[in-house]
Design a protein around this nucleic acid. Structure first.
Lengths: 228, 228
DNA sequence: CTCACGGTTCGATCCAGGTCGAAGCGTCCA
DNA sequence: TGGACGCTTCGACCTGGATCGAACCGTGAG
């Protein structure tokens, strides 16, 4: 069996704790400098530099120089997908990194998955949209209906511009904690942006946790009512 | 970022060439003995035994004793999913194991993905089914319509029994070579079984390639006409 | 019972690669 | 222009883990 793509290079890149920590940090969707990632991974800057070079070479992340800093982000949301899939399998196989800490429930309720909303609330949002026939599912990639576009416009998202980019408008992304899909793609990102803009929730600095205020959560539930 | 599942253990397991070769072989869906996997990976039986123990411990494969042989299979189709995702990323990142060999086109046209049909023909089959509204897509997991169940019965697949198992009846599985979905799950398996039973195609021994005969291919195209 | 065979365990070897100190290089600021 | 800072390169060190020979164990065959 010497055919097909070479999974070893990529898997080996993910198989080192320092690199995995860096990638986990980058799952927050924002760009980090080399130094920040070094601290995140708990290694010296030299070591981090070596790891980052390997990750760039492997096509998992990209770096942009800006002044004397270098900002790194995941290379694509495909990479984020892979990381979520891996986390799902690890979760199910019972490999926890540490025993559930205090912020673990918050992470399960709402977090960013690269640049869109994941966790209980992310799944609830997609459920609500599909239940009201605002989005439909065609062969794995979601598809906005006419009423859906109407809804999005009212919510403050111009879907016309989003569809122009080469990134798929919306896309089902499997959630590792809930084991069901939430909304990804350009629309997923735009929705989360609107949620921030309306002040319903804020990112907890340095983590993937998305913190909803009490009125924000109520407004969210009203905008995306549960199917039940 | 010390929260969430531990992806390192699993990724490290996949990051060794010998283990990756074994898993790639197991993607063919059939069970292999420890010795066969050792030859497949190009290592001695002792080394293979050590690797297999690690893979079992990590929950990626399971082994069953039978006489003086031990048969190994992938632990779940989730593992197969992960491998396909990894292959997709590796393919796109341009990491090929070897330069495309002679059987590469055959692998792209039709192969087994664990236990269901993948490649051009696998994608075409799902396309045909969705186009004729025989299956629908709800939040990532496919769903058979009433007419779909009718169609399956006519094709020789009793969907009633399949739905009883704890494995999802059907499921979209992202194809690494085509980068679109094909049909997985219990129904995907049953469909491939029927294709074998009707003599349309056979597995090429020891590889993932599925070889359609000329009349078999014609019958396949007739049963699953292209949407165009 | 004895032997052959598949699989595992043990121990020793060896090497890829992670790690960090020191030095180099470019950018920004005073 | 000098100095601080962020990042990278180089070199040396060291450890984890892959590998295999040899011995061991259980099953099946003669």
């Amino acid at each position: 069996m010497k055919l097909g793509p070479d999974i070893v290079r990529i898997a080996a890149l993910l198989g080192d704790p320092a690199r995995a920590n860096m990638l986990a940090a980058l799952m927050a969707g924002q760009a980090f400098t080399a130094g920040e990632l070094a601290r995140e991974a708990g290694v010296t800057p030299q070591t981090a530099s070596s790891h980052l070079a390997k990750l760039v070479d492997g096509g998992l992340i990209v770096g942009r120089r800006q002044g004397r800093h270098v900002y790194f982000t995941l290379a694509s949301d495909e990479v984020a997908d892979l990381l979520e899939t891996l986390m799902g399998l690890a979760e199910r196989a019972g490999h926890r990194r540490v025993r559930p800490g205090p912020s673990e429930p918050a992470l399960r309720q709402a977090r960013v998955c690269y640049d869109h909303l994941a966790g209980d609330l992310g799944v609830a949002m997609l459920d609500s949209l599909t239940d009201r026939a605002l989005v439909q599912d065609r062969e794995g990639s979601l598809c906005l209906t006419g009423e859906g576009a109407e809804f999005m416009r009212a919510f403050g998202v111009e879907t016309g511009g989003l569809a122009r980019g080469r990134r798929p408008l919306c896309k089902a992304c499997l959630d590792w904690s809930v084991r069901r899909s939430h909304m990804g793609g350009a629309l997923g990102r735009a929705l989360l942006d609107r949620i921030y803009a309306r002040g319903w929730a804020r990112r907890v600095e340095g983590t993937r946790v998305v913190n909803f205020s009490a009125p924000g959560l109520a407004a969210f539930r009203a905008a995306f009512p549960s199917p039940s």
